[in-house]
Structure formats: structure tokens, C-alpha cells
Amino acid sequence: MAIVRFGDISCALEPGETVLDGLERAGASIPSSCRVGACRSCLVQARAGAPTEASRRGLRETWRQRGYFLACLCRPQEDLEIALVGAAAERPATVVELARLSPSVTRVRLALSGDRSDWTHEPGQFINLARADGLTRSYSLASLAGEPLLELHVRRMLGGRMSTWLHEQVRVGDAVRVRGPLGECFYTPDAPDAPLLLVGVGTGLAPLWGVAREALRQAHRGPIALVHGARDPSGLYMRGELTSLARATPQLRYIASTLDGDDDDAADHEPIARGTVLDHARAELARLGAAADTRVFLCGDPELVKSLKRAMFLAGVPLRGILSDAFVTAAPPAPATTTNSA
């Protein structure tokens, strides 16, 4: 049975137990959020012993070489001694602006404290935002690297700890901490003529708003389609900004789609397209041209991201052409769905 040591805490893991679960059981405090390898809050370093391959998959090479791994995915066979890695990369920041973009979405703008000359991010990457008490959650960056403030779009989730706090309690001037930037869901200028299909549901728009503007800033030449989906019109936001940008930019199409509900003020907005975001994504993919050359960005609700990914792949987009961020929440996983295989 593997022994895990962290500071003065030492813990013998139960069979099948993760390093994160074991250390928490032993009273240690390790940052975590999703517990399934999506948010990278629980990134730790092995000082002695080898972490499992499964807990290192997808981490960049320099991190692997330093022994970094995700504590929530590691069920080690051998003893490990670990240390936190976040402290060095963690920066203090201040909430400087709060704006309600829709009944369920708040825009949070943060200023990094002190010298930010060594900060750089790609729009679409995410940060791990920590509150004073240590609660940590991931939020995608909607702002460009050159803009002075970090911009987040936070959807309010019923009973959600961080999102409720950011909607109701937080005040301008409050101190938070930021780790990152993380993630690979961002624009790269290596294929300036490629069609870009950006599909987001809910606050999945945040990274896409960043990606779209970054692509235009880098003079991307290929056509761009941005599909923003929500259940009903109240879930859509920034329609004014997106409509203006699309009207001023012939290569950009903006599709706001909802399943149902009345469109109250269509005059200065693109009208809402009815139907599922999946159908709109397929239609836009076909309109954009060669699926094999298209770069697809998918962000938001994990189940939708998963079905979109599959649909885009089956429609001919290579896996390497699909970038996605599933907004995995810390809620306990739903029971496994049955399959039609038997």
C-alpha cells in the first residue's frame, strides 16, 4: 500500500484511493475543484517517487520533467513525497469591476497586483481563481493579453459556492488570488486561412469572445462562425457587442440560438435562430467549407461539449483540429449512463 507524504502529514492510501482523497482524509489542504483532471487546481510535484502516467497525461513536457502531476487522478503504486507547486505561480489580484450581463451572468474584471510585466496569456485559456478562504474555481479568460484587466464571465449556479459569491457578495476592491494561465483552448496563427467554428453554450462564450477577437487582431483571413447557444433568450448575453462586431466584420458570422422563448428586442440584434446548438454547429460547419481544414473551438457545459466534439469529428473535422474546454463543476459525477451495446 502506497504511503504519501506532504509536509508533516503522512498517509497510507486505501486501495484505489487518489492522492487528493487520501491527503484530505489525513487533514491536508490541497487546492482542488473538478476532481476529474479538468481544472488543474490540484497540480502538485513529486519530490520523491514516481506519479502514475494517468495523472500526467496531457501535461506539458517541462512540467512532466519537474515531476508535476494531478493529485485527483493519481492512484500510485509506490510511495510518494509531494509538494504544492501553486504558490510560486500564484498572484494576488483585485476585483475592480462587476457588471450584470444577463440575469444569470456576471462579468468580473480583475487587476493583477504589482508588476504584471511577466504575465501573459492567450485569450481562451483559463485561470484558477482562489478566494481568501482558499475556495478555488476555474474561469476562462475573455480578455486579450494586451488589455489591462482580466475579464471573466461567471454563470450563476444554483447552490454554487463561488459563482453565488461572485454574483451576490463580492465587492469591488476585494482581494483574490489567480493561478495560471492554463489550458490549450486558444487561437494559434499557424493556419491564417482556415475556417474557424466557435461554439459555446452559456458562459462558454467567454473564451470564444477572446478567441474571436484574438483571431481578428492577428489578421486571420479565413471565415469565422460563432454559435452561442442557450436554453432561452435570458441565457444569451452580449448580443449587442457580438452583433456590432459581426456587422463590422464581413468574415464573421454570429448565430445566437435558443431552444425556445420569445425574442424581446430583436431590432438591434441579430434575430435568434431556433433549434439545438448541435444542429446549428453542423450547419455552420457545412457552410464554412472543408471540414478537414476547419479549426473548431467548443466550450461550456461538459455534456454538450462532449456531444459537439463527437458530432464535429463524425462530420469530418480531425481530432487535432478540435479544441475544447468542458466547464466541469465540482458536483459529484452523475451515475453512468447505459449504452446501447448489449
Partner: peptide
Amino acid sequence: VEIFYRKMLQDDRVAGFFEDVDMDRQA
């Protein structure tokens, strides 16, 4: 792999076995 995997996912007789797994890991 792209060709093979598309065929598997589109075939109801076997797609169920590949349903619940992460696509990149599966590839």
C-alpha cells in the same frame, strides 16, 4: 485512426463500447 474511429462510432453494434470514454484518450 481517424477513419477507423469514425467507422466505429457510427456503427451502433460497437459504438456503445466507446461511448463513455474521452475521445482523445480513445484515439
